[in-house]
Amino acid sequence: MIIIITLLLLGSLVSNLSFTASVNVRIVNGNEATPHSRPYMVSVQKNRRHVCGGFLISDQFVLTAANCRNNTEILTVVAGAHDLTNINENHVRISVSTYNRPPEYNPDLWSPIIADLMILKLATNVQLNNNINTIPIPLRSREIKVNTNCSVAGWGFVANGGPLSLTLREANVKIKNNTNCAARWGQIYVAPQMMCVYGSGGSCDGDLGGPLVCDNTAVGVTSFSSSNRCNDPNLPNVYTKISAFLPWIQSILTT
């Protein structure tokens, strides 16, 4: 699924400067991950084709981005994969029983893209093993220190315009100062709910919904970036801050 939106830079950016932002982002300038070194990663698929990343936060729930689905699409989740085309990996495909998005999320509101989270409840609990496992999320609201070493991963495009990667790729990134993020993106950057990163590699098309991982904890969900250039330092990749939505997440997990 390719979703491209056109927004107007506001606030501290130059007035009347227009740009496009993509909510379907991918790993560029990264490396192939060691197979199954990130067992929490899942491929979110439509019609058996990869559309987004996601990650297991329990044996029944996957966290991804709200923009990965419109209100009518049927999605499935593939867990335990490294090479999405390798049937000998014994990865598993699971149906989704419910799609849950925060009440603040508005699919018709593209500027700013707020509350870009979705929790998929799986139709059957996944069997956890060496290749399929969960990743913790923050237990309380907190800010990640600037320049903290983190990482992103996904099966998205490896360069502007493609192609998609068949194998899971990863890149190291660092947390960027919120003030700088807001200066780059203007008023569409909502600091209490978002965070952005910098690095030689990063997310691009097809990686929407994947985790931003710091200290072995998923702290963000890949949300949007520049559509003109993957991992553009002038418009850094933006992630939804998981800790800003902990009460809502807990309410879904305990329903």
Rank of each mutant, 00 (worst) to 15 (best):
S225F: 02
A66G: 07
T34H: 12
N131M: 05
A21V: 11
S111T: 06
I135V: 14
N24Q: 00
N88M: 10
L235D: 02
N86R: 08
F19P: 03
V190S: 02
F19A: 12
N228E: 15
V213W: 06
N133M: 06
A123R: 10
G30E: 04
T6Q: 12
I242W: 05
S225K: 04
W155D: 00
P138Q: 08
G162Y: 10
Y198Q: 12
N86K: 12
S223P: 08
H50P: 04
D205Y: 10
S37E: 07
V14Y: 10
C214E: 10
G53N: 01
S151K: 03
T85R: 14
S95R: 14
I114Y: 01
T254R: 07
P192T: 04
V146G: 07
N178T: 07
I3R: 07
G161Y: 14
C230G: 02
N180L: 14
E73W: 05
V23Q: 12
N31W: 13
S141Q: 15
Q250P: 04
T222V: 09
R49S: 11
N234R: 06
I87K: 13
P236S: 00
R140M: 03
Q45F: 06
W155M: 07
S227D: 15
D205L: 11
S22N: 13
F55R: 07
D207T: 02
